[in-house]
Design a protein around this nucleic acid. Structure first.
Lengths: 316, 316
DNA sequence: CTATGATTATACAAAGATTATACATTATTC
DNA sequence: GAATAATGTATAATCTTTGTATAATCATAG
């Protein structure tokens, strides 16, 4: 269920289509690009210009101004001034199908392209590829088959010393931003149980928890995502006052396992105690640690976590 | 940071547009300028006169007087006298639809409403208020007058023990998500210098760096935002290979100041070394620490940081 | 191979802007 | 009433902007 601002960045119109939509001749559109650097449409393999919905929206805005008698150069200047203040033109979306539009390109191909874009720290390209993948796949497929493989590739390349850790940071910041936006713009139906999710202070782990939060919210659960670094007592207070049906914590590191253990006990001690779920790398590599924790182990992957939780709260 | 009165001073109309708006022939407007020094419109590169909304308002005022039978020379004298007494003609802004739509509600009111929504952990409400504020203010105003005050309120309420730290987390996760999305969707024109921004591993500080990243990107700088926890050597490697014009680091805690100190030295030692800027709470409370750092202190606030950087890279 | 459409580069004409000078009306002043 | 000043408009010469045209290539599908 892609939201407006994600699908609108997909390059999908040739210059002729844009011309039809806007009533501006192709030669004129090219002249504006050449003379005023107005729009930098994505170029497909054959060097053809491919415009996105937001490009079209910008063109329409400009056309309106010109129709009102403003010269093209001033109109473009105005637009730049507005954009510096964060202005984003209203986008008329022709077909905002709520369903994925398969492109025929396999997810692994998107993962590879994303990886290459990150390797070059090319944010523009990464954003384009992401938008395309977002539109082509369902949410679980996007996470499991595009983003996680991309992150895995990056992690491995870093381990082999092929890429700088700064690239890894750049990529995870980028993906966290996209995930947070998806999380925030998912429809809040709150039809199902209320779950609080927290995680360890670590980027890769924040990504995992966010993905879980997204998948659960998209299933209709009411999710509060708290991120990392919550002191135990405060977490317990929060749980006591908010009364969720479940609390989920996930950690990667050895030390944090102790934190999970204590949290599980404190939460179990509450009256009307919520369920407690946990997961994370450390519990995969050292399964014995699970014995200390009072709660449900969510499994070794995000998908297994979702499945486990769905079993805990059956019925829809 | 354009305010209402500043946007009306932006030169945006050619003489022909002004003529259409006012009904005064271009040749007449020029004669008035030549003979009575009435209006000194900004001249663009090509020496064309560019008039602002307030210029148009002044012309309309004059036209009214002339239509009432007053001669042009006396009308202009009248206007000058009035202006010396602080008179400002009413400005009719035609295209405000494209500009932020002021709701009349002051930013502080939005901050208070956001704070209340967070206190109830009501994400739906927070999202609605945020969207409204986003549409009502320019980007710099949104950050400085809505979001920062909200975060300050939350921080203070937490300090007084009035709210749970989980609320603070909820709020900062929410705001970070919104900020990341704004950052990622700002148009990437990359006309200006390339700057790399990193920050300390702390939520409130991540928010500050993200805000700086947003404001600089909206000013046309090319910004790579790396977030927190970058090992020093990797940062230096990245800087060496990417060759930015500037590197910015910001930290809050005592220990991290040492990190900044060493980073500044390592970066200064590079050939073709970029500028180094830094800031953060620790340098405000302990100004002596600045002496150890080879680079530019960016000042005590986000706005001063933007100003300092704009001074380092003048011209647009 | 051909038709269609995209790409770049160059060209050109129409519209608009600039300055300077000129000129016909109106007001004002003596 | 005549001389003078004020004021809107016109003209000419020059330069810039801007939409459109043309030509030579390249891409793709039938």
């Amino acid at each position: 269920m892609p939201t407006a601002s994600e699908t609108t960045a997909i390059p999908r119109y040739t210059i002729k289509n844009v011309s039809k939509k806007t009533g501006i001749l192709p030669v004129t559109i090219r002249a504006w690009e050449r003379r005023y650097e107005f729009l930098s449409p994505h170029r497909s393999e054959n060097r053809y210009r491919m415009y996105s919905d937001s490009d079209v929206a910008l063109l329409m805005w400009i056309k309106n101004r010109v129709d009102q008698g403003v010269s093209i150069s001033t109109a473009i200047n105005e637009l730049h001034t507005l954009q510096n203040n964060g202005f984003i033109p209203e986008i008329k979306q022709e077909y905002q199908s709520a369903y994925p539009k398969p492109t025929g390109i396999p997810p692994a191909e998107y993962a590879a392209r994303l990886y290459r874009a990150f390797k070059k720290s090319n944010e523009i390209e990464a954003a384009e590829i992401f938008a395309e993948a977002r539109a082509a796949f369902t949410l679980p497929a996007l996470l499991a088959n595009v983003l996680i493989p991309t992150l895995t590739q990056i992690g491995e390349a870093w381990y082999r010393g092929e890429i700088d850790v700064a690239i890894e940071h750049f990529a995870s910041k980028f993906i966290i931003g996209k995930l947070m936006h998806i999380f925030q713009t998912l429809p809040l139906r709150a039809k199902r149980e209320f779950i609080i999710i927290g995680c360890a202070p670590d980027e890769f782990h924040e990504i995992g928890s966010l993905m879980l939060a997204i998948l659960l919210r998209s299933q209709g659960y009411r999710i509060d995502y708290l991120g990392a670094d919550i002191p135990l007592d405060d977490l317990v207070d929060f749980v006591e006052s908010e009364k969720p049906a479940m609390v989920i914590l996930s950690v990667t590191m050895q030390g944090a396992a102790k934190y999970v253990e204590i949290a599980s006990q404190k939460i179990a001690a509450l009256k009307k105690a919520p369920l407690f779920g946990y997961g994370g790398a450390i519990f995969i590599s050292q399964p014995k640690l699970r014995l200390q924790v009072k709660g449900t182990y969510l499994g070794d992957s995000i998908n297994s976590a979702v499945e486990t939780i769905e079993k805990l709260f059956p019925g829809k």
